[in-house]
Amino acid sequence: MKLPIRLSVTLLLAGSLAAGAAAAATPDFAAARAAILAHYAAAAHKADPNFKAFSAAAGRSFFLAHPAGARPATPSCSYCHTTDPRNQGRTRAGKTILPMAISRTPSRFTKLSKVRLWFRRNCQSVYRRACTAQEKGNYITFMASQ
């Protein structure tokens, strides 16, 4: 009976370590995301002094819209990320994309350089322009609500 006991102790230890890591990581993600949202809020306020708060509903319609001038290969954000952000997405080259919804992928929108890179690329492809700080904040707020 030695082995099972040892095994269960190991499992217990590993489990508590993992839980500890998750507990330590989650607040970090939340803090990092809050910092990024604050960054966009400041920019939105600068562009429009009447700016109050980001709207998840506006983020949702931005996400689902099919803008008229989109590149034919990329008609909408939901084309790759699917209409339900809790789903896995799929790139044109066939690679799966982890869900955009924060409930499913807690690490989303936690690294400013990555968020910037993809907003720049994907806004160019779909909207044929840079997105505004307000659009970006709405988008993240929508994903945080999912």
Partner: peptide
């Protein structure tokens, strides 16, 4: 990389 097989893949850095 801006026009990478129909997508923008530029690295921006």
């Amino acid at each position: 990389l801006r026009h990478h097989f129909g997508e923008d893949a530029s690295l921006g850095d």
